[in-house]
Nucleic acid binder design. Structure first.
Lengths: 338, 338
DNA sequence: CTGTTAGCGCCTTCAG
DNA sequence: CTGAAGGCGCTAACAG
């Protein structure tokens, strides 16, 4: 590929002049500018961001690290983050940690080595602490998405989980349900903890009993083995009439497990969940959900990240915590209890 | 951040020795190696890929450019591509063109500027030609996914679209349907063209009539405006008893449109489609689909890309075209016609 | 086994 | 308005 020296030689100017034309800096006569531009076209010049990053000590590259690229919640976040990054003149790279701390660590290493200017990250859970500390140590700004990590101060974008749990339980109660179970993510994830807390508080608030056996805590990520859910369903006597799912993946897994046992939703069991399914929510049985504003997660998070990057050196703002509302979308996955 | 010179100074060796330790090249005495390693730890050294890329003239960075990051078909491709890239020691960056040639062009520019070693790309359509020519001009290897572009020679991973169309139509016929409509993507996309062709051929093969009005061609990407579909549904007299959707997005949109008019699937209308919905297929009404092997798309594509990169200089292999089978998944979105 | 030299492509600084 | 020198962090090539 052509370099600024190739351009300079052919245009009969110095490399500096070419650099100035490219970056629109300094004063250049219209004539030389035109000539340089023409040669650039002829030679199909493409600026080399690698060399540029090396000398400028910044890459104009931001990184978005999510935990599940097949989950519409996170991909919608990605769309938002992409738009925000572009607006601020940054390019955005995505990574997928797969809910796995080790993969997350690999990505963190790659991010550091690539000299990305900042990171927007949905941490895998509390164990992400050391990974985030690594970012901090090397002074790479980051913003957390959807999950907080105890011991880490940073900006963070969260959903109003407790409010969401309350709305779900109240909705179920209004439809006559009192035996409400919860299938939730691992307690090593802050959002799962909050969902459990919210569930318990909501039960209390609604004078409903809390029963340990009605709660299943398992990994968020999809797995082919549904026996854990099956055992749980068997264990619950009397069986609940409704189930709250801690996220969309779990909701789908519960519905699938129920289907395999011949239990249809909502005829035999009502199911509600956190996080929407993207476009696919519209398909029967119109799962009732708390839809987090995924796009806003990405957009606001990216905005804050850019601000952090730009404040470099100035006196820093205090850590901010954005809590987005939890919107209940009532669809048809809930029937009246008999 | 610390550089190899910082390490070298503190360890009392030269920068080259440090470089050798980092890359495990040359012969280094165990003693100096250990010492260097220790200092690296102390200083929290992170190699600078930017500097490395500049001198090595290769980034070990691959790019995956897909057209819709919220579509499970493409995100599953991403998972496959990621695994394959990692296996070969490459890092993978994702981009999302949103079915938009201009966004695609922006990404191509960014890819060139970043000096990525290769690109795995699902082109937006035939108009991607100029973008791909730009990659070719600069000698950046690429592999096409899911769509071919007339005028571009390259490796490509495709689904067996015609076979898929045939299977869908035959399945519908076996359930008694004879009035079968098609909602399809834009004819500027090779896969859409093949789907239409396959549909026509399958009708003929099954002695079913082809009717222009039974075919709607529209953009693949999701849009809030469903009136186009509504008009089409109105236009068809007599109405079909079954609809084939050209991809999962269109399938969802049709089902949604039908729902809005009070038509349920499959009671009032049978719907089948191309591309699975990821985990969400399992939710009622168990949409019957041709499930393309999305993961394999990503995995094989990445494998071929890496081969292309590694063959640099040697006599090149001819362009390869991998066609993956079209698997029909019969679920419950089809009822017997009355 | 280890060190020196030079240069990847670009931009900052300082001179004209 | 334009150019020359130097360096960002690293490694290939050549010496020792």
């Amino acid at each position: 590929m052509a370099t600024i020296y190739d351009i300079a030689a052919k245009a009969g100017v110095s490399a500096m002049t070419v650099s100035r034309v490219i970056n629109n800096t300094g004063k250049i006569s219209d004539k030389t500018r035109a000539k340089v531009r023409r040669v650039m076209e002829e030679l199909n010049y493409v600026p080399n961001h690698v060399a540029r990053s090396l000398v400028l000590q910044q890459s104009k590259l931001l990184f978005l690290l999510i935990t599940d690229i097949t989950n519409p919640f996170y991909t919608t976040i990605a769309r938002g983050a992409e738009d925000a990054a572009k607006k601020h003149g940054y390019r955005l790279l995505f990574g997928n940690s797969d809910e796995n701390v080790d993969k997350e660590k690999d990505y963190i290493d790659a991010i550091l080595a690539t000299r990305a200017d900042g990171v927007l990250i949905a941490p895998t859970g509390d164990l992400s602490l050391s990974n985030l500390e690594r970012l901090r140590l090397h002074n790479v700004p980051f913003v957390l998405l959807d999950r907080e990590v105890p011991g880490v101060g940073s900006d963070v974008v969260l959903g109003d989980t407790k409010e969401g749990a309350r709305k779900l339980v109240e909705h179920l109660k209004s439809r006559g349900h009192s035996a409400i179970a919860l299938i939730n993510g691992s307690p090593t994830i802050s959002s799962a903890r909050l969902r459990l807390e919210g569930y318990r508080e909501a039960l209390k608030l609604n004078d409903l009993p809390f029963d340990d056996r009605y709660v299943l805590e398992m990994a968020f990520e999809p797995r082919s083995d549904l026996s854990e859910i099956e055992n749980w369903l068997d264990r619950m006597t009397p069986p609940p009439t409704a189930i709250v799912a801690g996220n969309n993946v779990l909701a789908v897994e519960v519905i699938r497990t129920l289907a395999e046992r011949g239990n249809r939703v909502p005829e035999h069991m009502s199911v509600v969940g956190f996080d929407d399914l993207g476009p696919y929510s519209e398909i029967d049985p119109f799962l009732t959900v708390i839809a987090q504003q995924a796009y806003q997660f990405g957009y606001l998070g990216m905005q804050m990240l850019v601000e952090r990057i730009q404040e470099r050196g100035e006196s820093p703002l205090p850590w901010r915590k954005v809590v987005l509302p939890a919107d209940l979308i009532v669809r048809r996955s809930v029937a009246d209890a008999t």
